[in-house]
Amino acid sequence: MTQVLVLVFALLIGVIAGLRAMTAPAAVAWGAFLGWIDVDGKWSEWVAHPITVTVLTILLVGELITDQLPKTPSRKVPPQFLARLVTGGFAGAVIGSAFFHTFSATGAGMIGAVLGTLAGAELRTRVAAARGGNDRPGAFIEDALAVVGGFLVAFLVSVV
């Protein structure tokens, strides 16, 4: 049962990466730092280091700001899409490392990133259409979903 839950959490953190690429690694770093994700003595132990947490938090905040800019490229263009695959896979791997399921959790995180990328783009499109082309409300909704969801997933890992 634990392996299934690990893969579900890895998939969910991947979805978060699809919404906001830097939110997933920042959330798992905070989760590791706070002891929610047990990385002690594992390859991923460095993620819990205060410097790593600080850098990823700065990148997260920067992404939340730049996402509001009108010239920000679509998440579906290759560089943006690839970034989400990488960060989703990485965040999934960190969660998986806590239970010695790094490789399968990496794949689940990447699959989640694809789902989150496509679902997030669709959400923004629909909200923009309903608001006469204004996608800023959709961006704020997505920001909140990503940040709250990312930290919720990281916390729930501690329950397993």
Rank of each mutant, 00 (worst) to 15 (best):
S74L: 04
Q68I: 11
A121F: 15
V53Q: 04
W43M: 09
G88M: 04
R126Q: 14
G88A: 03
T106A: 02
L85W: 02
L82C: 13
A129F: 13
L69A: 02
V47F: 11
T106M: 03
P137Y: 14
T87L: 10
L60D: 00
A139W: 01
T87C: 07
G138N: 13
G150A: 00
A108V: 08
I95W: 03
G88E: 02
I58N: 04
W43A: 07
G107N: 10
V53M: 00
D67Y: 00
V77A: 09
A128S: 07
G88I: 08
T87Y: 09
V55L: 03
G35N: 05
F140I: 10
T72K: 14
L34H: 07
G92W: 12
H101M: 14
L123I: 11
V159Q: 12
P50I: 02
I141F: 07
G89W: 14
V153R: 00
A146M: 08
V86N: 08
G120H: 08
G120C: 01
L145V: 05
P78V: 05
F81P: 07
F81I: 08
I58F: 09
W43C: 02
T57V: 06
R75S: 06
G35V: 00
R126W: 15
G35Q: 04
V61K: 09
L59P: 02
